[in-house]
Amino acid sequence: MNRLSIFLASLAADPTADKIVPPTGVTARLTLFAAGAMAFMAVFAIAISLAAGHLAERWGDALKGVATIEIASGDTAEVERALSVLETTPGVLRPREVSEERQQALLAPWLGTDFPLEALALPRLIELREGPSFDPDGLMLRLSAEAPSARYLKPDEWQSRVASAAQRVSQLSVGLILLTGAVVAAMISLAATTALVAQAGVIETLRLIGAEDSFIARAFVRRFTLRTLGGAALGTLLAALVLLSLSRGDESLLSLLRPDWRGWLAILALPFLSGTIAFVSTRLAATRVLARLL
């Protein structure tokens, strides 16, 4: 019998398996709650991971062909000198300083609209479009005399920074999902072990009447798998509703959290993934405990 058949056989209707495991109120509620909470968090981790990808894509498009001069000192005189140099440099098109309002707007998703930007030592930024005869090395040579703290940020540097930041957020989210899976596995394993040890008398009785270990393990595996599946389904449903409510509308940054079809597919898979984790964890715990309870 392959692993899939074992998994499905464990979940198939089996009133016997259901009835031999005594009802355990606290463990049942704990498993349900933990599986639900973990699924809830995993849904948001998926949404954040996908949103980071969308954000990188959106910003990447917006920044295509746009170079930036960063004036690290923030000095207004230096900015003005840099602008004069840029206006007379061949290949530089439409140089203009990024206004404070625009910086505020760019940072609003992260810092909010009321944040006093003057409290941060932010660099001043000059945006420009690159023409056909644009020579960045020549430009920097000219700027070094007039604006010593100027730094030329290539268009793809911004893109790669954004892409790298998005990738990190994405990796963090994947890590969070893996961590959530590991916590589910550890928690189910602990709950199953506790239940098995607490039911040592039941196991002894079952062995007395001829029950094989696989029969006993199957009963516990089924109980914990279905319980986890139920908890995770509830957590996923709740998270999906919250997600839909948060991401309503097209303007807010939170609208990025609205999953596309791939996202929904991943979210829908969560309860089954949790069930699979519970199946494997309980099976391992049962094998270990049954071998110990000679």
């Binding site: 002894e204 009785t205 062995r207 001829g210 094989e212 270990d213």
Partner: peptide
């Protein structure tokens, strides 16, 4: 353990202290 359990099906056991679920 499993072989012993299967063999036990040919034995009816009434333990000293009742063991029920």
């Amino acid at each position: 353990r499993d072989e012993a359990a299967r063999l036990r099906r040919r034995i009816g056991i009434v333990p000293q202290t009742s063991r029920f679920l």
